[in-house]
């Protein structure tokens, strides 16, 4: 299944990028200038400071992942000399926190 198939039917657009392009065209400025000008407006629709909401969602997800990791660990066939660790994030230290120390 090609999850990009929808593209060929209806061209999808990022809401924020649409705003940036429109603003850039309207003021005839660069994309980067336009982006910084529209960002505050776009952010108004995001619950950045609603810590209860954030913690609830993130906590729920973290719990899901812990349960999944536990289930995977139980079902894993007996392993060899400890294979590769966690995924590497280009944004920072490799491995990240996802792999708890292996026994």
């Amino acid at each position: 299944m090609d999850t990009a198939d929808q593209h060929y039917e209806e061209k999808f657009e990022f809401p924020l990028w649409k705003m940036i392009k429109a603003h850039a065209a309207k003021k005839d400025i660069s994309y980067v200038k336009a982006a910084l000008e529209v960002l505050p407006e776009f952010e108004k629709g995001i619950r950045y400071r609603d810590t209860k909401f954030e913690e609830a969602e993130v906590g729920k997800r973290a719990a899901e992942l812990r349960a999944l990791q536990e289930a995977d660990r139980k079902n894993r066939p007996p392993g060899g000399p400890g294979g590769p660790g966690g995924p590497g994030g280009p944004g920072g230290p490799q491995g990240g926190p996802q792999g708890a120390p292996k026994k």
């Binding site: 990009a4 198939d5 929808q6 593209h7 060929y8 061209k11 999808f12 657009e13 990022f14 809401p15 924020l16 990028w17 940036i20 994309y31 980067v32 982006a35 910084l36 960002l39 776009f42 952010e43 995001i46 944004g91």
Partner: peptide, 20 residues
């Protein structure tokens, strides 16, 4: 989407080109 602006804006364009 906000983080796209913070880190690499061209991602918007490249993703839309491919329907991502």
């Amino acid at each position: 989407e906000v983080a796209y602006v913070d880190e690499r804006m061209v991602s918007f364009k490249l993703a839309e080109d491919r329907g991502f």
